[in-house]
C-alpha cells in the first residue's frame, strides 16, 4: 500500500458516497445515468468474487463489501425507490455495445484462462468504459449539476491516482500488470475532457455546461 493507492481508494469511496448522498438528500436521481451505475455494479460483483476464495486483509475485504453494497444501493434508489425522477429519456446509451465486446476481449486477452480470472479481466475492461453512458448523457443534456461534477471528478481521479500507484510499484516493487495499466490509461483518458471542464469551470464556481 502506498499513498497513491490509499488516496485513490478513498477518492473512489468518496465518489460513490457523494452520489448516494446526492440522490438520498434530493430524493432525485435526475442527471445520473442508471446505465453507468448498472455497469459499475456489474464491475464490482464480477471483480470481487474472490471475497469468497482469497482473503487478503480486513481493509481489502471491507472495501470490497462497501463498494458492492453502496453501488447496489445506488441502483436500487435509481430503479426502484426514486424511479419517477430517473431521466431515462436522456440515458439512451446501449450498454450491450460495451458489455459484449468487453466480454469477448476478456475471453481472448487475459492472464489465465480460468473463470475467476476471466471475470476479473472482464471487470477491469468494463470499468474502463463504464462511465461512457454518464458522459453521453451529459453531452446530450449539455450540462451537469455541480454535485454530479464533483462525483465525476472524484471517480476519475481515483484511476488517475492508481496510474501513479502503478508507476510507483513498477519502480519500487518491480510489479507490473499490463491489463490493469492499459485499461487504467483508457479509463483516465476518457475523463480528460471532463477534467478540463471541471478545472476551468466548476472549480471557479460555475456550473458545468458544454459549449453549444
Amino acid at each position: 500500500m502506498n499513498i497513491f493507492r490509499l488516496v485513490g481508494d478513498l477518492s473512489h469511496l468518496l465518489a460513490i458516497f457523494v452520489l448516494l448522498l446526492k440522490i438520498w438528500k434530493s430524493r432525485s436521481c435526475a442527471g445520473v445515468s442508471g446505465k453507468s451505475q448498472i455497469l459499475f455494479a456489474l464491475v464490482f460483483i464480477t471483480r470481487y468474487l474472490d471475497l469468497f476464495t482469497n482473503f487478503i486483509s480486513v481493509y481489502n475485504s471491507l472495501m470490497k463489501v462497501i463498494f458492492i453494497a453502496s453501488t447496489v444501493a445506488t441502483v436500487y434508489l435509481m430503479y426502484i425507490k426514486f424511479k419517477a425522477t430517473y431521466d431515462s429519456n436522456h440515458d439512451t446509451f446501449r450498454i450491450e455495445f460495451l458489455v459484449v465486446p468487453v466480454g469477448g476481449l476478456a475471453f481472448l486477452v487475459n492472464h489465465d484462462f480460468t473463470p475467476l480470472e476471466i471475470l476479473w479481466t472482464f471487470s477491469i475492461y468494463l470499468e474502463s468504459v463504464a462511465i461512457l453512458p454518464q458522459l453521453f448523457m451529459i453531452s446530450k443534456t449539455g450540462e451537469a449539476e455541480t454535485i454530479t461534477s464533483h462525483y465525476l471528478f472524484a471517480l476519475g481521479s481515483y484511476r488517475a491516482l492508481y496510474l501513479l500507484n502503478w508507476i510507483y510499484r513498477y519502480y519500487f516493487e518491480g510489479y507490473f500488470d499490463l491489463i490493469a495499466v492499459v485499461a487504467g490509461c483508457v479509463q483516465t483518458i476518457l475523463y480528460c475532457d471532463f477534467f478540463y471542464l471541471y478545472i476551468t469551470k466548476v472549480m471557479w464556481g460555475k456550473k458545468l455546461s458544454l459549449p453549444a
Binding site: R5, D9, H12, D50, N54, I56, S57, N60, M63, K64, F67, H111, D112, E117, W120, Y162, N165, E173, G174, Y175, F176, D177, I179, A180
Partner: peptide, 10 residues
Amino acid sequence: SNSRDSHDEL
C-alpha cells in the same frame, strides 16, 4: 510478478 499480485488492489 504474476497476475495474482494485482488482486490485492481494488
